[in-house]
C-alpha cells in the first residue's frame, strides 16, 4: 500500500511543519506583522540542531538550543523593526538574508547528514514501530504541549497585551504597555517555534540543509489559511491553534495527492503559491459579490415599491 504510506508520511510531516505554521500565526494573525525572518530562522533551527547532534549533544537539548537560536533571530528582527523603525517586512528580509550566511557559518558546509548521531526519532524507546508512526507520535505530543503552553501564555496579562497590540496599538500604549516590547517578545516566540520546528524536521529527515527553509513562509500561510477555512472566525483560541496544525496536515496531503497525480516537483512551489493566493482571495471575492447582490436586490425592491 504505497499510497496509504505516503498519506501517513504526509500527516507526520504536516504536524512537524505545523509547529512552524503556529509560529507564523503568532506574527501574521496575532501581531498583524508580516515577518519574513521565517525562511532564515527555520534553517537556523535545523543548522543549530544538526551541529549540536554531531557534537554528541542530547537530541532533546539540541531541539531546545534550536529554539533559543530562533528566539535570537526573532529578537533581532524585532529590534530592527521597533527600535530603528525599519518596516517589518524589510526588517524580516534583512534578518533572513543575514541568517543565510550565519547558517552556513554554523554548519560549516551546505549540508550535514545525521547518520550516526543520537536522534529523537531513531532512538524512540518503543520498538517495532515504523518510522512514520514514530514521527506521528512525537510530533503529536510536542504539538499538544506547544498548543497548551501557547493557550496559557496568550491568556496571561503579557499575552493579552501582545494580542491587543496586533489589534489596536494606540490603545495598548495608552494603557501603559510598551508596544515595542510586546512586538519583540511576539517575534521572538514566533521564530523560536519556527526554529524548534526546523530542529524537529532536521532530526526526522536525518539531515540539515542550507536550503531547507526556502518557501517556509508560504507553506505556513497555506496551513493558516486552510486551517481558518476549517473553523469559523471567533472560535476558541485553542481550537484555532489546533486548526492550524490540521491545516498543515491537509496541505501536506494535498501536496502528496498532486504529486501522485503526476505534478512535477519542480512545479510544487508555484502550485503552493497559487493555492495560497486563491485561498486568500476567495473570502474577499465572495464578500464583494455578496455586497453587489444585496445592493442590487435592495435597489430593485425600492424601485418596485415606487412604481406601485
Amino acid at each position: 500500500m504505497p499510497f496509504l504510506l505516503a498519506i501517513q508520511s504526509a500527516v507526520g510531516q504536516g504536524i512537524l511543519w505545523g509547529i512552524m505554521a503556529l509560529g507564523v500565526f503568532i506574527t501574521f494573525r496575532l501581531l498583524d506583522i508580516a515577518d519574513l525572518t521565517v525562511d532564515g530562522s527555520f534553517a537556523t533551527g535545523g543548522a543549530v540542531c544538526a551541529v549540536a547532534l554531531t557534537s554528541g549533544i542530547n537530541p532533546f537539548v539540541a531541539i531546545l538550543m534550536a529554539t533559543v537560536s530562533g528566539f535570537i533571530a526573532g529578537g533581532i528582527t524585532g529590534i530592527l523593526h521597533t527600535k530603528f523603525d525599519i518596516p517589518a517586512i524589510l526588517a524580516g528580509i534583512l534578518s533572513q538574508i543575514g541568517l543565510y550566511s550565519i547558517n552556513l557559518r554554523i554548519m560549516g558546509r551546505s549540508n550535514i547528514p545525521l547518520l550516526n548521531t543520537p536522534n529523537l526519532f531513531k532512538d524512540f524507546p518503543i520498538g517495532g514501530l515504523s518510522n512514520n508512526w514514530i514521527v506521528l507520535i512525537i510530533g503529536l505530543v510536542i504539538a499538544v504541549v506547544i498548543i497548551m503552553i501557547s493557550y496559557w501564555f496568550f491568556g496571561t496579562e503579557l499575552g493579552s497585551a501582545i494580542r491587543a497590540t496586533g489589534n489596536n496599538e494606540k490603545m495598548v500604549r495608552s494603557l501603559g504597555v510598551n508596544t515595542n516590547s510586546t512586538k519583540i517578545i511576539g517575534l521572538m516566540i514566533s521564530n523560536g517555534l519556527i526554529a524548534l520546528s526546523g530542529g524537529l524536521v532536521t532530526q526526522a529527515q536525518g539531515y540539515a540543509d542550507i536550503k531547507m527553509g526556502i518557501g517556509a513562509i508560504v507553506m505556513a500561510l497555506a496551513s493558516i489559511v486552510i486551517g481558518e477555512v476549517l473553523i469559523s472566525k471567533g472560535t476558541n483560541f485553542m481550537v484555532t491553534l489546533a486548526a492550524i496544525i490540521s491545516g498543515s496536515i491537509i496541505y501536506r496531503i494535498i501536496i502528496t495527492l498532486v504529486l501522485q497525480a503526476g505534478l512535477s516537483t519542480d512545479d510544487l512551489k508555484l502550485f503552493t503559491a497559487i493555492l495560497v493566493a486563491v485561498a486568500l482571495a476567495i473570502p474577499t471575492y465572495l464578500a464583494k459579490r455578496r455586497q453587489v447582490t444585496t445592493y442590487k436586490k435592495m435597489t430593485k425592491e425600492l424601485e418596485d415599491a415606487e412604481t406601485k
Binding site: T156, E157, S160, A161, A164, L175, G176, V177
Partner: peptide, 18 residues
C-alpha cells in the same frame, strides 16, 4: 479582556492569568 487590560494600565504585564 479589554477591561482587564485597562485595569492593569501602567503595571508590569506578568505571566499571571490575564
Amino acid at each position: 479582556e479589554n477591561l482587564a487590560l485597562a485595569n492593569r494600565r501602567g503595571k508590569r504585564r506578568t505571566l499571571a492569568w490575564g
